[in-house]
């Protein structure tokens, strides 16, 4: 399945782009996409609760399984940051 990831603020800067298209196995969760994208970055070990997850522009739990065509966004922690 194909999904689109939208990136903002420090997450956009960490990956150097505002949007990523991914081809994923069925059953992949929003949290797994975050882990995959940010592996090796300063955000790799960020506690899960500091990021909010949005799927198709609605807040959803991190463990939500994605579906083909979904738009996923990671809403960065609102205070602090590593910039």
């Amino acid at each position: 399945m194909k999904i689109r990831v939208r990136l903002f603020a420090m997450y956009r800067e960490a990956l150097g782009r505002g949007e990523v298209e991914l081809d994923l196995a069925d059953g992949t969760t929003a949290a797994q996409v975050f882990d995959r994208l940010f592996a090796g970055t300063a955000y790799e070990k960020l506690p899960r609760r500091t990021t909010l997850y949005a799927i198709n522009q609605t807040y959803q739990p991190p463990a939500t399984m994605l579906r083909d065509g979904d738009e996923v966004a990671f809403i960065p922690p609102v205070a602090g940051g590593l910039a």
Binding site: F8, A9, M10, A54, Y59, A73, I75, P76, V78, A79, G80, G81, A83
Partner: peptide, 20 residues
Amino acid sequence: TTVPIWKHERYADGSAWVDN
């Protein structure tokens, strides 16, 4: 608390993304 808008502050000695 709910609207996804971020604020980037630049200081004399650095910068940070902070709550809106």
